[in-house]
Nucleic acid binder design. Structure first.
Lengths: 342, 342
DNA sequence: TTGTACGCGTTATCAT
DNA sequence: ATGATAACGCGTACAA
């Protein structure tokens, strides 16, 4: 049995028409008689013909593949965004290639290159924490026509469409909620400030304080990563310094979880003595010993929007210049027991 | 500015050598003088030449792409397996395409076809719950050379390598653990028995009972899905029928979670009155009000093993016939408070 | 309505 | 050591 699949040549020989006719019949070209179309399609099915997308791509320049670069795929946030992108693009015939940067800008660069070599039609990405310079991205814009779309973790580069949530607003909402619950001394676990998202959450936090006539105390802001351990450490630092807050707004659910664990260990009551609210609405937050408040980033919707923006940009590419789109989604505040004192 | 990248033709014209020479120089062919190699490589760099993988793939028949089909990507288990596969294959120059079947065999079929059209070098998959017939998979084996690798949710098809955990053993371990903790009337939330994994977990449960001189009571086995709601319903059914168990071994963490919620609502104490143990070791299990015991499937390792098996099968493809590999990983029992009475 | 012939960018097989 | 050219499979402009 020959496992090489049939080509249009094989079909053309079998029924004595030219390859051109076969090709056109298969693509429902208007100027082909219904009779030959039927015959071609029937024999194509019989011979188990499968179109070779490679050859087609080589000719057309479109691979119908897109790439996605994220730090890691097995997080709730990124895998959900990927789900959204896949579901939006799959009906349009696109395949989705995923790459992991491991938060390393050099790996990110390498993936960017290999994706371009693979001729993807577009690249979706959330930059790594170590991505400071953006020349490697800028140069792609300058030397190729491959559109790049940032989601969540963006950089300000003209010509690149972005899909983000309003992190500023998320930070503002969370903080304002704590204020309205009567908390007076709200601290903030800020994330890596190299990333805009964490800058924005911090700024939202600050502005909410200001708008409600609270002082912004720099001592109340601590930089943490997104791990349980760093949340534990942050609590230790605050409580050992005796600059004790009565509420924590963490830019990360995991750090917030660590905080809850350390507070419990110290017999500090949540939410009576200290409120905790996180960010991302990780699945575990609702199942915790004390369900934790959090800000949802609607990641699946973010992915779908990213997909839509890409599809639009591909369509309007008759005009030559593609228009830069900026989509900002609304964050959703989920209030649970960890921050309700009233 | 011309955004079309240079080809080997452009290079050959510029330095007056043939394309063949350029190609060979670029590929470090032994019979090309060092001088020309240097010249070619230098001008290639100058002209910002990028190899067109499409053309190469068309010629060689290898795309260096693999496909993965899973029900959904945004679950901890599947995204972790994907992570493992990506990390294993990326160093070998492969790109990973992800597809979601949404538990629908028809969508699964469609993806299988589009992946083949895209000429992927291999397909990793976990079959959907609605995959009963396997002709569509068998026919790929018969008509193509594209290797298929099952992980976790497999079907018995000769010639297909599989990577699974020992679900039987997982079920056995969980049940035996409950017995040793002194529970006497252990019920089981079985999953969709169309899938082998759930069959095996059930069988492991049964055998553990038998080996410890317990009766296997069919009334103690209930089929549930993998959702919180179905776990709640299952508890309702058991407790309303007055056939009250003192332990639950659930084949799903989410159903187990639902059970915990419903038991709490009914003021039934875990683990004193009823023990609960789940399956999958979802992240949330350790952060629950009462940390829940569970069986870990080591998904990242599963993905890495799947990647390795693929790489091996590609390498040994000089022999023509590829050998079917069956990898069985050991499940890991995580004992937490929800099942410790002693 | 259908056929001929070329090009997409590479690699490989002959030659030389 | 290098060059000319065929092939990979497809779509399409140009002919007929």
């Amino acid at each position: 049995m020959n496992k090489k699949s049939a080509t249009i040549y094989d079909i053309s020989k079998k029924i004595n028409v030219s390859v051109a006719t076969v090709s056109r019949a298969l693509n429902d070209h208007p100027r082909i008689s219904q009779a030959t179309k039927d015959l071609v399609k029937k024999t194509a099915k019989e011979m188990n013909y499968k179109q070779n997308n490679l050859a087609k791509a080589l000719k057309s320049g479109e691979t119908k593949n897109v790439g996605i670069i994220v730090p890691f795929v097995n997080t709730n946030f990124f895998s959900s965004v990927i789900r959204g992108i896949e579901e939006e693009l799959s009906p349009h015939g696109y395949h989705v290639i995923i790459c992991q940067s491991h938060e390393d800008v050099n790996i990110e660069k390498r993936h960017l290159n290999t994706l371009l070599n693979a001729q993807v039609d577009g690249i979706f990405m959330s930059v790594s924490k170590t991505t400071i310079d953006t020349e490697h991205i800028q140069s792609i814009l300058d030397t190729t026509n491959t559109p790049i779309i940032f989601f969540d973790r963006k950089k300000d580069i003209p010509g690149i469409s972005t899909i983000v949530i309003d992190d500023y607003r998320g930070g503002y909402m969370a903080t304002e909620h704590l204020i309205k619950e009567g908390y007076k001394n709200i601290c903030h676990f800020a994330g890596d400030l190299n990333l805009e998202i964490y800058q924005n959450r911090l700024n939202g936090y600050k502005q909410a304080l200001i708008d409600h006539n609270f002082q912004v105390k720099e001592d109340n802001i601590i930089i943490t990563g997104s791990s349980i351990e760093e949340g534990i450490d942050a609590v230790k630092k605050f409580w050992d310094k005796k600059s004790i807050p009565d509420a924590i707004f963490s830019s990360s659910d995991f750090a917030a979880l660590g905080a809850c664990q350390e507070l419990k260990k110290r017999k500090i009551k949540i939410p009576q003595e200290v409120a905790v609210i996180g960010f991302s609405n990780e699945p575990f937050t609702q199942f915790m010993e004390l369900p934790m408040s959090s800000v949802d980033q609607t990641p699946v919707i973010m992915g779908k929007m990213a997909g839509q923006v890409f599809i639009e940009s591909v369509k309007e590419n008759g005009s030559g210049v593609s228009i830069e789109k900026k989509v900002v989604l609304a964050p959703q505040l989920y209030i649970r027991k960890s921050s309700k004192r009233k």
